[in-house]
Amino acid sequence: MAKRAFDIRRQTGFTGIAIACFLMLYMPIILLVVYSFNAGTSIAIWEGFSWRWYASAWENDLVQEATIRSLIIAFWASALSTSVAVLAALATTRTRSFKGQTAVFAVIHQPLMVPEIVTAVALLIFFAMIKVATGYNGLAYLIIAHSAFCIPFAYLPIRARLQGMDLTLEQAAADLYATPFQVFRRVTLPQLWPGILAGAMLAFVISLDDVVITEFVKSAGQDTLPTYMLGQLRRVVTPEINAISTALLGISVTMVIAYTLLSKVRN
């Protein structure tokens, strides 16, 4: 009889550790969701079920403004970073390997490695100089900052998709008189769409969720939903925060599910 390979699931204590880990991860979130339905004003003492905090958040002008601002930033950051990511992915998979390719990968992945606080401080100082020089104070700074750190998240699924595609299809198109641009538009792009959508969605969620860089880059009156919530926590804490968090969680979970489904689409 051949012995089974080392099976970690059969080791003593494995189940206990696994359950403990999942509890640590999800109990706080479950509690947060539960207390968003609290009828009372406490986030720790249950006083019965109610939708009041959802209604309260919905009617709160500041929440509405921050939500719209968050969505605008996330939309543009997602669109910009995905466009750049498509070009970067094409340049790193559909060309001959070139000198310094590893360095290029490192540069593209940089936002995943560098501590966010460093990027945030650097952007704060850099944008401050531009603000002085131009006098412009709008949302563009946030959009550009978000686009920058979203690029690697958009890039990874797009590159994976490109690498998984059959190169002979592009050769076949070229063989059938398609110019390089026609090959891209008629053969590469239609097959790349699931990857592009997945990348865009991931970038959208990452942008929606950002606190650190936004907190440093935003001008006065430019709160996004996460920075508004952070500001609220410093004052009175009501289950309204729980309700907003739960709504954000819902959006993120939906996006992640859609992303997973899209990444699974194969020929």
């Binding site: 059959d166 002979t168 299809l169 050769q171 076949a172 198109a173 063989d175 059938l176 053969v187 097959q191």
Partner: peptide, 11 residues
């Protein structure tokens, strides 16, 4: 024109 070994039809 080429007939490819794996046919390479556009899916």
């Amino acid at each position: 024109n080429t007939v490819f070994q794996n046919y390479a039809l556009f899916p």
